[in-house]
Design a protein around this nucleic acid. Structure first.
Lengths: 346, 346
DNA sequence: TCCCGCGCTGACAACGTTGTCTAGGCTCTA
DNA sequence: TAGAGCCTAGACAACGTTGTCAGCGCGGGA
């Protein structure tokens, strides 16, 4: 009843299937399947009839059903922290390009730095039966992924290592990069250097702090507790942290910023100061060269991280399921633009 | 034969199914389904047995099969130009957030500004039977999506309108924004103003050019053909275009930049000049306030674009399939930071 | 002429899940 | 205590596709 006036061939959610195409073309179901998939063994005449029926009905193969039958989904999942973060854009794009080259689609989601949300997202992707997973961890316990990995979901962790499981990992040399950056400041005469970073539970933040301390220790410099500030990277906290270490009787003369969000806020704080303060930031960012002075940075290649991880993933999918987990570390590089070369202003 | 030494319960790609769980728990298939979906009508004792079997086997529901049976995939597709572009990051994230609020996942892909790739991507998403599609068009003919839309794929176009079909669209006021920006320059005394924009086949570029011309005409100013330059937004071309209009006997004294990529390159060119040249750019970008002078911009709210589009999409999915296509236009706003307020230097 | 083989085609089962329907055991009431 | 009704549970079909296999018609070799 309540038949609406819609055409009979295009009721919402009632798409034509191969069965419909077969009926219209007067052929068998399997023949349609063969035509759709470009398989051989179909007479040109039959093929033409099927093609016409496909056109006429607006048929499009249902890949959900195909996936169910074939077992592989030709899609991979990406769990990252925040798609809107300029660091993850290129990374995500690089993963997408590799996926595309392998004929796979990319499904992604943001964890918003929340371990529960990361887990929820990763497992939802597994339920969709993605062939593989690229994860930028928010949490530090990934045992929940063990059954999935065992079941064949190729999984690669990027930017931060997996927690409590052994898995493929692609990282930047956070420790070495930070050490180099701080050493650079020391080489320009600084003795009192501040470090402002992300929350210590985040691996990259911890590693960069370790690099900072190593550089200080290598130079035989003491580290005042007041010079180290780790926490969220929202502007308010970073601003307060910067202002604190830049005031008092023995303020820092240089700052090492733990990531691009921190750097940007620190630049703003320094812009309001009358005396010059040296700065090196972890992560490069657009326009860093146009600021005055240009901001010296430890650059990591986000696209390379993504590309390397995705390639590793597909290598595993293309027959290397049994390879031992690998840990790949990419080098960082110091880019000097002026801010890191300022001498200490006493 | 060739039985490998893997455990029997975890052969690759041989995940446990509800049938396995049912067998292990000694219950029927449907009972497992009920437990997994939290349906009522299962004794606590039975439920416990099923849960134990699920845990023991590491079972996870296969959403592919579920989708096939239920008809809805709880996922939407996003086709954009480039995930790595800082303008699309927040847009993408906003779409994701709305999708998440509706329990849907986001599948996305970049068209790289190639119409063929856009089509390929959009149709691949339709084959996956996404419930809806958010498209940032690269091409100007979207008739290929007509059968899909008719079949119930809720589709919303963002940032640029659909070509040759009638569909929901969410746009910024590109024409008005550009007109305001150029009028701002005129109000500060400029007479010779250059426009550098994206390729004219891209709707936003054409609209912004139209706004530029309107502002000039409103002020009774002539437009020299040499002041208008449209084309790709790679640094090389933009640099050449800027240098051309800034030289010669009657160089422009101000530039209106058609999007954020153009603006950045123009800023670099102007930084190498001795005389001040006024600049207003379309699109806000990070650190625009920290440059010297700060860059005045026409800001559009990328997140609002994405959010509005996604909300429109879900409203359509939640019962409004038959609503007439709507065109929503979001206002832009002028942010003055200095570069747009420079007087003409003759 | 007969038989074999090959090229094309379609019937059928299976992928893993959910909706429908029915069976069986229990409680409650008259 | 019998019958009605409810609650739990399972059998079965269906979603749309692909892999397997068997059948049919035709040509060529013995």
């Amino acid at each position: 009843m309540a038949e609406t006036a819609r055409g009979t061939e295009s009721r919402y959610g009632n798409r034509p299937t191969m069965k419909d195409v077969a009926a219209r073309a007067g052929v068998g179901l399997k023949t349609v399947s063969r035509v759709v998939n470009g398989e051989s063994g179909v007479t040109p005449d039959t093929e033409r009839r099927v093609q016409e029926a496909i056109e006429a009905l607006g048929f499009r193969r249902n890949d959900s059903a195909r996936v169910l039958r074939k077992g592989r989904t030709a899609s991979i999942g990406l769990v990252l922290e925040d798609l809107a973060d300029p660091f993850y854009g290129p990374l995500s794009r690089a993963v997408e390009e590799v996926a595309r080259a392998h004929g796979a689609l990319l499904i992604n989601g943001s964890s918003a730095e929340d371990p529960d949300r990361e887990q929820e997202l990763a497992l939802a992707l597994c339920a969709r039966r993605v062939d593989g997973l690229v994860v930028i961890p928010a949490g530090d316990d990934h045992r929940y992924l063990e059954p999935e990995i065992k079941a064949g979901v190729a999984t690669v962790f990027v930017d931060r290592p997996a927690g409590r499981i052994d898995a493929d990992t692609v990282l930047s040399d956070n420790y070495g990069g930070a050490r180099d950056g701080v050493a650079h400041l020391i080489a320009h005469g600084h003795r009192r250097i501040g470090f402002i970073g992300d929350q210590p539970r985040i691996h990259t933040a911890a590693e960069r702090l370790r690099g900072y301390r190593a550089a200080m220790e290598d130079a035989g410099l003491p580290v005042d507790e007041a010079w180290e500030s780790l926490g969220t990277t929202d502007a308010q906290r970073v601003r307060a942290a910067a202002e604190a270490m830049l005031s008092g009787p023995a303020p820092v003369t240089a700052v090492f910023a733990g990531n691009n969000r921190v750097t940007v806020t620190v630049v703003r704080v320094l812009a309001g100061l009358s005396r010059p303060v040296a700065l090196v930031g972890f992560d490069d960012f657009e326009l860093a060269d146009l600021l005055q002075p240009g901001v010296s940075v430890i650059a990591q290649d986000a696209a390379a991280l993504g590309r390397t991880a995705a390639e590793r993933l597909f290598r595993r999918l293309d027959g290397g399921q049994d390879a031992a987990p690998e840990r790949i570390e990419l080098a960082t590089r110091l880019i000097t633009r002026g801010s890191g070369e300022l001498p200490p202003a006493e």
